[in-house]
Amino acid sequence: MGKSNYLRAFCLATALGFTGSVVAPSLAHACGESLCVTAGKGAKWKAGGSMSAKQIKKERRKNRKRKTSNVSITIDGGRGSVFVDGYYKGTAPISEVELKPGKHDIQVRNGDEVLAEGVLTVPRKSTDIEITVSG
């Protein structure tokens, strides 16, 4: 399966309503729209998705006792700030952002321009997750 076939499959999945879900296999590198995730098994990025405040609270309660994973976020060729679950988390490049397992609402923006937004699923097993956003 060539590179163009991957792209076609990705576009088809988006058209069918799967909205760019990228499942990162074990220590794999997977890219969606303007964002790449390198992570251990089980990490998942759903581009464009969002979570309500209620969902965020529910996820937080559910996973509060679980071990955190380290997330680092870099922006390739630009700048931007990172917001996780509705809060300012820092300005890229940031590393060692500790996230509990479960779903997290993430947005990366440069001023009024949204560089990437979606829902990151952090696996239960603690792992390092690297996110690279295209600037």
Binding site: S50, S81, F83, G86, D112
Partner: peptide
């Protein structure tokens, strides 16, 4: 500006 525009959106807690 990043934070202010974020606060204007619907993702802010």
């Amino acid at each position: 500006l990043d934070i202010l525009y974020f606060l204007q959106g619907d993702r802010a807690s």
